[in-house]
Design a protein around this nucleic acid. Structure first.
Lengths: 254, 254
DNA sequence: GAGTGGTCTAGACCACTCC
DNA sequence: GAGTGGTCTAGACCACTCC
């Protein structure tokens, strides 16, 4: 079973380094090159395919980035063993996701107020006492079905009028950008499981104690000072996080 | 507040491209260079710092990889806007994690048998009917507290004797490697939330209906044929997944 | 047509590994 | 000391963007 040509076409519009990387990828995924086996030295690869060493290095950089090979200084370049046992999950912004599925996205502001940060906010997040903050509760719907419930606190430094429509649909870091003069530079998110309380059950239209995803987010400015905090609850019966690892689907996102 | 030198030291042991990348990183994180602002053209950067264009390009490749800048062909190189609203969670192999925390890891094999794959396995995973499979149930403990409950099915092609100790502690892809002649090349994992049933509650020593993380994994061979399936239940009161994104902690793992 | 990043060459010297 | 990848130079030509 041949998965591709083993020669380089110098007249092709496809870059030489890309053609070379493809050749090695094919040899690795077809088993011709086994894990931990070494590739020929760079100067040799250059000689074999009639190209320069920098071009060979560019191909190897590509293969390294995609996790197919690793290099050891002074020793050589070797085929990687695929990493399958780490879990790395990704969840795009749920607003994007709902729209991508062609569903109607809507949001409802349950509550909004300007508060002074209290001892809880100071202790839990590190926002200094008596700082002006906005506090929001929002429910997000897809095709009129409630899917996500969010509570957010963030430092509020602008004195411009607040538009409800601006508060409903924005993510925490967008809210901080638009409603304060602070610049969100870093974010920490923690994913937990939880069982819904009475308020959450009612807002999300699920039974009391239903299992849900709980994401707690803290947004920091460039000096690592916390400037916002959010809690999002995703219905467990409607959400899952999927992860692919290994060789095949790697270029999915490239 | 100066976060570093703005000149390159050619006599330093630190590579020139790395020094140059550091200069731009400092300017970006300090706000001297704002998001979407352009860097000088490559030939100009080369002239300014007295280095060659390939070295400048190596620095820019580094900055691109770390998410600080992006390039547009024919237009230039620009400072990125930090991406904060994607969720990407990572959970290392839980065995590694428990050991890293200095806790005692142990595993208990609840059940093991050789079965022929049935209609459920064929439908759910795609393993052909009547294929020899191993079926396992294992509970993993940290300091004698049950934390994870796993059920696994995978194709069994070797006829060598099975050692219980080999089955207890291995991850699904390691099990497939060691107990069959198949080569796991890709893995799909889905993370869900769930509430424990009676059996799971008893084994994990939690109350009935407690919320838990549920990870379903399918392992594929190089031709994308499924060769193993696993379900892992992580106690919700003991597990969380943490994620950092943005500019600062980026080099954490490099 | 001027400006930009993308690709490629043919060299050079270095630090590291392994004997 | 031989072999290897890491860094760096000084050029060349190209496709693309924008006018």
């Amino acid at each position: 079973m041949s998965t591709g040509s083993f020669t380089i076409d110098k007249s092709s519009v496809i870059p030489l380094y890309y053609q070379l990387a493809k050749i090695f990828k094919d040899q690795i995924t077809s088993g011709t090159l086994q894990p931990n086996q070494s590739l020929p030295p760079e100067y040799e690869i250059a000689k074999i395919y009639g190209i320069s060493r920098p071009t060979v290095r560019q191909a190897i950089a590509e293969l390294t980035k995609d996790g197919f090979v690793y290099t050891l200084k002074g020793k050589g370049t070797f085929v990687s063993v695929p990493q399958l046992d780490d879990i790395s999950f990704e969840l795009d912004d749920f607003r994007k996701e709902i729209k991508q599925r062609g569903m109607k996205l809507s949001s409802k502001l349950i509550r909004v107020e300007i508060i002074k940060s209290d001892a809880m906010l100071e202790k839990k997040i590190g926002i200094p006492l008596d700082t002006d903050c906005l506090f929001l509760k929002v429910v997000h719907f897809a095709d009129d079905e409630p899917l996500v419930f969010e509570e957010k606190y963030f430092i509020y430094t602008k004195n411009k009028p607040i538009l409800e429509s601006e508060l409903e649909g924005y993510s925490l870091s967008n809210l901080v950008s638009s409603q304060s003069s602070l610049f969100p530079a870093m974010s920490e998110k923690v994913l937990k499981v939880s069982a819904v309380n009475q308020e959450e059950a009612k807002l999300l239209n699920v039974e009391l104690n239903s299992p849900v995803f709980l994401v707690e987010q803290i947004v920091f400015d460039i000096d690592e000072r916390p400037i916002g905090w959010g809690k999002s609850i995703f219905r467990g019966d409607r959400y899952k996080l999927t992860n692919f690892s290994g060789w095949h689907k790697k270029d999915k996102k490239l």
